[in-house]
Nucleic acid binder design. Sequence first.
DNA 1: ACCTGAACACCGTTCAAGT
DNA 2: ACCTGAACACCGTTCAAGT
Lengths: 232, 232
Amino acid sequence: MATETGPGPQVPLNRQRVLRAAVSVADARGIESLTMRSLAEALGVEAMSLYYHVANKEAILDGVVEVIMGEIDEAVNRADVPAAEDGWKTALRARILAARGVLLRHPWAPGVFGTRTTTSLAVVRYFDAVVGVLRAGGFSYDLIHHALHALGSRALGFTQELFEPANNDGDDDAATEMLEQLVDQVPYVVEMMGEVAHDDPDSTLGWCDDQVEFEFGLDLILDGLERLRATA
Amino acid sequence: MATETGPGPQVPLNRQRVLRAAVSVADARGIESLTMRSLAEALGVEAMSLYYHVANKEAILDGVVEVIMGEIDEAVNRADVPAAEDGWKTALRARILAARGVLLRHPWAPGVFGTRTTTSLAVVRYFDAVVGVLRAGGFSYDLIHHALHALGSRALGFTQELFEPANNDGDDDAATEMLEQLVDQVPYVVEMMGEVAHDDPDSTLGWCDDQVEFEFGLDLILDGLERLRATA
DNA sequence: ACCTGAACACCGTTCAAGT
DNA sequence: ACCTGAACACCGTTCAAGT
């Protein structure tokens, strides 16, 4: 719970504690407030001490990816169903939704994944397991290769949300009003929102159920892959 | 071509010139070197002058998105095929591939799109046109809504490339060697790469044809949507 | 109306120095 | 072995001041 407590380092710092504290800081105060100085403060240490344990901030972000991937591995191991019994689609779906559960607890993580330039071994290992599931399901490597590209980051449980952090501060009325003034600029979108909102009286401008939509897109891709596999 | 030439501002600066110069700087030297000071220098002006024309750097990045979306609109208008004649799938596919062509010229742009918190009107207008194409193709708004989520950023021609900027500096041998030492850690990936490389002797570690893979994923989704539309 | 200089708070990082 | 203080180059930004 607490990122660190007490005065200064009774026990010497190490790389693992630095990385875990970085995740905690990002969780608690957002990734943009993760600085060498704020991280050091959370650890009860001076900023310069961090450089004894990690090369620089980039290395910290690389390490943060490893920590998150470790959490994903844990979640998958807890949730995964055997591929042989229920088929590849069920197994892969469960794996991806488990990964998604982890990333929902670290909403800043997808952005960090996107900024890494060197390929993380932990990420490759994750994809290796995905390839294994598909292989056990009878896919050719050629189709598996295409499949990985089709899934993209969805294989890790996230998608690039283009409209995500809209300020949903309860002012749905103001937002609706604004949209009404845009009727001539985006007529189809306005009509769509009106109709879907009408079908589901509970839905307002925050009308998208992220989980439902993620599963819709995931199933669309998985179903398409199953069709290709069966006719290959 | 030149971002600006000559000494200082003969003609007064304005918002449009600031934004276009920002795109030029990002194209030429990368998004990370787009700073208020470097942008000002490219415009032959002091950094503080920029604040007369834009609120702050965030506003510049918002404006950059508008500029890019303008280029996409141009490209789409040049390339788009009428929806009525060739069907919605052909029209949407052409539209998305036109957008992709623009983003390939600005490889830093997807990252900027990802960082924007306020929703860009230009982006919403683009998606409005996508909704229009699907609507003309006989989709229900409910299915269109799901479709937008399934497409995600792919509707704009990009995907979150998790393994993109690998240092492809000709040292494929070294990379292959490294991978061979990982055989026990990622056996399926190694086997996959060996087999696909064997099928196509030209392909090495830079073995993925981005355009081919993008179109594969796009078609997978579009074909799945067509099936859902037809059976609805 | 449009641009600038000086200054501020904040970054990541280096390096010699402490214990 | 592990941590620190002082310093550096670089950010975005404010504000009063220039023309």
